[in-house]
Simulated assay, not measured.
Amino acid sequence: MLRPRVPTNPLPTVVIHPAPEAPVEKHAGPPMTLSQHSPAPAAPASGGVHLSAGATVAAIGAGTVAVLVIGAVLVGMFLAISITAGSLAIVALVARSLLNSAHHQR
């Protein structure tokens, strides 16, 4: 259906020069042999973590409490930011009003 198309470049953009070959030293030791290793033992087929009924209820309860606490903290932060923004808006209006009235009285 949708197949990516890789662009082909007919001319290389960079010329690569092969590195000069270094002389290879002969190893004077005994010849190396290949050895077959046995495969690693298979992992047991346990299906993850097993929880008892009480542990499952406790985990669900702890998760619910964590979500509620984090939600309350985030809502509190949002309220603090919105109250601060509203206060700043009121201060800006009062300051503008004072500056305009002082300017018009001259």
Results as ranks from 00 to 15, higher is better:
L2S: 07
R3G: 11
R3P: 07
P4M: 09
P4F: 12
P4Q: 09
R5N: 08
P7H: 01
P7E: 06
T8R: 09
N9P: 00
P12Q: 08
T13C: 05
T13I: 11
V15R: 15
V15F: 10
I16A: 12
P18W: 03
P18T: 00
P18G: 04
A19M: 14
A22G: 04
P23R: 12
V24Q: 10
V24W: 12
K26W: 06
K26H: 08
K26G: 02
H27K: 09
H27M: 01
A28K: 13
G29E: 02
G29Y: 04
P30L: 13
P31R: 11
P31Q: 09
P31F: 05
M32G: 05
M32L: 11
L34M: 02
S35H: 05
S35R: 07
Q36S: 06
S38K: 11
P39S: 09
P39N: 03
A40I: 10
A40P: 07
A42H: 14
A42K: 15
A43W: 08
A43D: 13
A43Q: 08
A43G: 04
A45M: 08
A45H: 11
S46W: 12
S46N: 14
S46P: 01
S46F: 13
G47F: 11
G47K: 15
G47N: 14
G47E: 15
G48P: 07
G48H: 03
H50K: 15
H50F: 14
L51C: 03
L51W: 14
L51V: 07
S52W: 07
S52Y: 04
S52K: 10
S52G: 14
A55D: 15
T56D: 12
T56K: 10
V57I: 15
V57H: 09
V57Y: 08
A58D: 13
A58I: 08
A59V: 03
G61V: 09
A62Y: 04
A62M: 01
A62D: 03
G63K: 06
T64F: 11
T64G: 13
T64E: 03
V65C: 00
V65F: 02
V67K: 00
L68F: 09
V69N: 02
V69K: 06
A72S: 15
A72R: 11
V73W: 10
V73Y: 06
V73S: 06
L74P: 01
L74S: 09
L74H: 09
V75H: 08
V75M: 14
V75W: 13
V75D: 08
G76I: 00
M77Q: 12
L79Q: 15
L79K: 15
I81Q: 06
S82P: 00
S82C: 05
T84D: 11
T84S: 13
T84N: 07
A85E: 03
A85F: 08
G86A: 11
G86W: 08
S87M: 12
S87H: 04
I90A: 10
V91W: 01
V91G: 00
L93N: 08
A95M: 04
A95G: 04
R96I: 15
R96T: 15
S97P: 00
S97C: 05
S97A: 07
L98Y: 12
L98T: 02
L99M: 04
L99S: 02
L99V: 13
L99R: 06
L99D: 05
N100E: 13
N100V: 14
S101A: 15
H103Q: 11
H104G: 02
Q105N: 09
R106T: 00
R106F: 01
